[in-house]
Each structure stands twice: as structure tokens, then as C-alpha cells.
């Protein structure tokens, strides 16, 4: 059989002796609700949603977790996560999370926010929550663009990067410089763990999952604020194919926003 024939006979390869429960090594978590995600093809949001739900399921903390969704593309995050969640106003997720965590200190709280939400309109809430050392996890999706409103400049847009509001490329003399919010909050004593990961390759997906796991563990130990910045793509607004957008992450985003731990708890240094 040549390759063309193979494509026409898609079910031929199902190895019935392998596809049995005994040999199952990976399936999507039950906590990720089994409906279509609204995200564009190739969007990293879906991966991070899944990772969060995987960690919550594997750590068996569904009954302890309360999530806070932002305004932005992931405004509907709560549609996919089978956990208790609150939808915050634009930029206010960390204030909402503060309210939740302060009255339910034994629960595990996370916010899920994009760059516009967390680093533009919500900068004050972000920095002050971190400065108080609020004991929750901030998952920060940095795709350098406003996704939901269709591709305007974000605080994290790279110099020279074309967006609908920087049609000739971001001119830093006019619009200022990309805000490295992770490096910024890492300075604050209340913050326990800051790391930057990405989800553009399988290895980086694994590292992101590990970081989420660690952050929940730190939260259980009351260590303070954890922030995980995840570099993600936005194929639609970057006007790229998903594969090109991942290449952009590798070649343009990572040199500016280097991956790795920015702050770890003292005893682990």
C-alpha cells in the first residue's frame, strides 16, 4: 500500500491489541469538559486549559480548587473546566481571587489571565496582589497581542511587531516598551515562584505542567504568590499558520522573553 492508500483507509491501523485500557498512557482529563473549545486552530489556550485540568485531576484537588477567568479570549475558560469558577471583570482577576482566597484560605485558588488583562488594565491589581503575597496561582498567558478584540497591541507586544494598532510595527518611541511583568513581580518579597514556560513543543508542554503542579504544591504550603507566564501563540492575529506561529515563539518571543525559572522558593535555590 502506498501512502495515498493509507490515508484513504484511516481505520486500518487501529491496533486492537494495543488500544485497550491496560495500555492507556494518555487521555484527556475528565475535568476538561468534553465539548469543542472555541479557540482558533492551534491556539495555546487549549493546551494550558488541559494542563491545569490534568494537574487538578491528578492531584485530586477538584473539591478544593476555585478558578477565576479573565476577560479576553479565555473569558469562557469556565465553560471547559469542570470546577467551581468565577468570571472577573477585565483586569480584576487577582482582586477577585484575593476576595475568594481571603475568605476561603483552605481552598486552592488560581487566576487565568492574558497579557492585556493582567499587564495592562489589571497591572495595579496584579502587582498589589503579588506584593501582598496573596497565596494563589496566577497563570499568565502571554501571546503578545489582544486576541479577542482581534489583534491590537498588547503591553507585551514585541518591538517592531505588527498589530492592528501598530500597523507599521511597534514603535517603542511612541508606545513604550514591552512590559516584562514576570521579572517585575519577581522582585516582590511576597512572591514565591515565578517561571516562564511555553507550550509550543511537547517538552515545553511537559515543563509547563510541572510548573503548574509545583505552584499548587507551594500554595498548599502557604508560600505566597506563584506566577507562571506561558508564552503562547495567536495564529489568527499574528496572521500565521499554527506552525509558523510556533516558529515565531521560538525565534522571536523566546529571545525576548527567555524561558526558565525567574524566582524559586529560597530552600530550592
Amino acid at each position: 500500500m502506498d501512502e495515498k492508500d493509507l490515508k484513504l483507509n484511516e481505520t486500518e491501523f487501529l491496533n486492537e491489541d494495543i488500544c485497550v485500557a491496560e495500555y492507556l498512557v494518555y487521555k484527556k482529563p475528565e475535568t476538561l469538559i468534553d465539548i469543542d473549545l472555541h479557540y482558533c486552530p492551534g491556539c495555546g489556550h487549549g493546551v494550558v486549559h488541559r494542563l491545569l485540568m490534568e494537574v487538578i485531576e491528578e492531584m485530586n484537588i477538584v473539591d478544593k480548587v476555585i478558578g477565576v477567568a479573565p476577560v479576553g479570549c479565555s473569558v469562557f475558560a469556565y465553560n471547559y473546566m469542570d470546577i467551581d469558577m468565577q468570571e472577573a471583570a477585565h483586569g480584576r482577576a487577582t482582586a477577585v481571587a484575593t476576595g475568594i482566597k481571603r475568605v476561603l484560605p483552605d481552598k486552592l485558588v488560581f487566576t487565568y489571565q492574558g497579557d492585556g488583562d493582567l499587564a495592562a488594565i489589571g497591572t495595579a491589581e496584579t502587582i498589589h496582589a503579588c506584593n501582598r503575597g496573596e497565596n494563589f496561582l496566577i497563570v499568565f498567558i502571554n501571546n503578545a497581542v489582544y486576541g479577542m478584540t482581534s489583534g491590537q497591541m498588547a503591553p507585551t507586544t514585541l518591538p517592531g511587531m505588527v498589530t492592528t494598532t501598530t500597523p507599521f510595527g511597534r514603535d517603542t518611541s511612541i508606545t513604550g516598551f514591552p512590559l516584562k511583568i514576570s521579572e517585575l513581580v519577581a522582585q516582590l518579597p511576597g512572591v514565591c515562584y515565578v517561571t516562564r514556560t511555553s507550550v509550543h513543543t511537547a517538552g515545553n508542554v511537559r515543563r509547563t505542567k510541572k510548573a503548574i503542579q509545583k505552584a499548587f504544591e507551594y500554595q498548599m504550603q502557604n508560600k505566597g504568590t506563584c506566577l507562571i507566564e506561558v508564552l503562547s501563540n495567536c495564529p489568527s492575529n499574528w496572521k500565521m499558520t499554527p506552525l509558523e506561529s510556533n516558529k515565531f515563539i521560538e525565534e522571536e518571543m523566546i529571545p525576548f522573553y527567555p524561558l526558565g525559572d525567574i524566582k524559586v522558593p529560597k530552600e530550592e535555590k
Binding site: 495500555y23 492507556l24 494518555y26 487521555k27 469543542d36 479557540y39 486552530p41 493546551v47 511537559r206
Partner: peptide
């Protein structure tokens, strides 16, 4: 792991 829509279930023997 990289699938944004979690459409893949994996088996390994």
C-alpha cells in the same frame, strides 16, 4: 501533549 483540543488518546505497550 501539543494538541490544543485534546483530541488524542494514547496507548503504549
Amino acid at each position: 501533549l501539543v494538541c490544543p483540543d485534546a483530541v488524542i488518546t494514547v496507548y503504549r505497550k
